[in-house]
Simulated scan of single mutants.
Amino acid sequence: MTLVPYAGSSAPASASVAELRPRPKSYVSRIWRHGPNDGVPLFRIDAAIDPATIEDRALSAALAPFAAQLQDLSIYVLHAEEVKPLAPWAVGRLDVDEKSAHVFLHDYLAAPNGMLMLNLFQAPGAVADIVMGVAPMVVEPRRIHFAITDYDIGIRASIG
């Protein structure tokens, strides 16, 4: 079975979306200033995906050549305007090529509790989990781009 680019104009049905579960390893938070009135908050989650653990066989096979890049997956949480979506219905994008693998989650920081969630990463013993639905948009031998149809980031920590 071969991974085929999604060509629909609306979001794909959830039954046809593959699921990825990156394993978070660490995070980096910073402000990137590029002028007196311009500042971009940056929050990056360093994660890994092992293609062999992906249930969807076509997706697993397509990502296998990029296994090394997926061990250093960077997940950026952003404002809506910072990275162009692959589709109007997408809530993020995953770009994988011969050099790197990056996820950009659109509009995360503008969500009602987006900034609060970032603060919770600092809780002692906090554990994060991430689940993303992906639809392939560009499938080429040296790169694959996915539109993220939905994502769920959870943070757990003990109280007291």
Score class of each variant (00 low, 15 high):
residue 50 D to E: 05
residue 25 K to N: 10
residue 133 G to E: 13
residue 152 D to I: 03
residue 19 E to G: 00
residue 54 I to V: 12
residue 14 S to H: 00
residue 153 I to W: 02
residue 92 G to M: 10
residue 88 P to F: 02
residue 8 G to D: 12
residue 29 S to E: 01
residue 23 R to C: 02
residue 21 R to W: 14
residue 9 S to I: 09
residue 47 A to P: 09
residue 74 S to Y: 01
residue 10 S to H: 11
residue 81 E to V: 09
residue 104 F to A: 12
residue 2 T to G: 01
residue 26 S to D: 13
residue 57 R to M: 13
residue 127 V to Y: 06
residue 21 R to A: 15
residue 71 Q to M: 11
residue 103 V to Q: 07
residue 87 A to L: 11
residue 78 L to Y: 08
residue 42 L to N: 15
residue 116 L to T: 15
residue 157 A to R: 10
residue 131 V to L: 13
residue 57 R to W: 11
residue 89 W to P: 04
residue 145 H to E: 09
residue 128 A to N: 05
residue 3 L to V: 12
residue 109 L to K: 13
residue 29 S to Q: 03
residue 133 G to S: 12
residue 1 M to D: 11
residue 82 E to C: 03
residue 9 S to P: 08
residue 130 I to C: 05
residue 115 M to I: 02
residue 81 E to C: 07
residue 88 P to S: 05
residue 157 A to W: 14
residue 72 D to H: 04
residue 49 I to A: 08
residue 37 N to C: 09
residue 68 A to H: 00
residue 115 M to H: 06
residue 103 V to M: 07
residue 110 A to N: 13
residue 150 D to L: 06
residue 136 P to C: 07
residue 116 L to Y: 13
residue 130 I to T: 11
residue 25 K to F: 06
residue 112 P to T: 13
residue 84 K to T: 04
residue 64 A to T: 14
residue 49 I to Q: 10
residue 105 L to D: 04
residue 9 S to G: 07
residue 155 I to E: 02
residue 136 P to A: 06
residue 28 V to R: 06
residue 107 D to N: 01
residue 140 E to D: 05
residue 15 A to D: 15
residue 18 A to N: 08
residue 32 W to Y: 08
residue 134 V to C: 11
residue 153 I to M: 06
residue 74 S to D: 03
residue 108 Y to E: 02
residue 149 T to H: 07
residue 145 H to S: 07
residue 127 V to N: 11
residue 72 D to L: 03
residue 91 V to P: 00
residue 16 S to L: 13
residue 100 S to E: 15
residue 83 V to T: 06
residue 93 R to A: 04
residue 39 G to E: 14
residue 68 A to G: 00
residue 79 H to R: 12
residue 160 G to E: 07
residue 33 R to I: 15
residue 132 M to G: 08
residue 125 G to K: 09
residue 32 W to L: 05
residue 21 R to I: 08
residue 65 P to V: 13
residue 70 L to T: 00
residue 104 F to V: 04
